[in-house]
Computed example of a mutant assay.
Amino acid sequence: MSASVAVEVQLRRRLGHAPPHRGASPHRSLPRQQPAKAAAARARLDQLTPRERDVLALLAQGETNADIATHLDMRESTVKAHVSRILTALGVTNRVQAALLALDAGLTT
């Protein structure tokens, strides 16, 4: 399994879109985030504009740039610009890392 696939599987598990690990109880809930980790993630999200937060929330739900553009009534090129700014502001290198940070901050459930 490639690293990017492994990260995607991890993200899907954390978001509840994939079955749990083998042998895991189906009733086992995800571990709660540590308060310090959540606070640090929220502090990083404070650097974003409200519109960038809207884009990030949809990105964290797995939406494509085209879907985000349709949902927020903006051009896809504008979404791409927002995504680039989000990645830079958060200090991450890809959408998966941004989505995980949003999840840690409680931006998505």
Rank of each mutant, 00 (worst) to 15 (best):
M1P: 13
A3Y: 12
A6Y: 10
L11Y: 04
R12P: 03
R14M: 04
R14P: 01
L15F: 00
G16V: 01
A18D: 05
A24K: 09
H27I: 03
P31T: 10
R32E: 03
R32N: 11
Q33C: 10
Q33H: 13
P35D: 13
K37T: 10
K37G: 08
A43M: 08
R44H: 07
R44G: 02
D46G: 07
P50A: 06
R51S: 06
D54V: 00
L56P: 01
L58Y: 01
Q61F: 00
Q61K: 09
G62P: 03
G62D: 05
N65C: 05
A66I: 15
I68D: 07
T70Q: 15
T70L: 14
L72H: 08
M74D: 03
R75I: 07
T78K: 07
T78S: 03
T78V: 04
K80Y: 11
A81C: 05
H82Q: 11
V83M: 08
V83F: 04
V83L: 12
S84K: 15
L87A: 12
T88G: 15
T88E: 14
A89T: 08
A89I: 09
R95A: 06
R95C: 01
Q97T: 04
Q97F: 03
A99M: 09
A105K: 06
A105L: 00
L107C: 05
T108K: 11
T109Q: 12
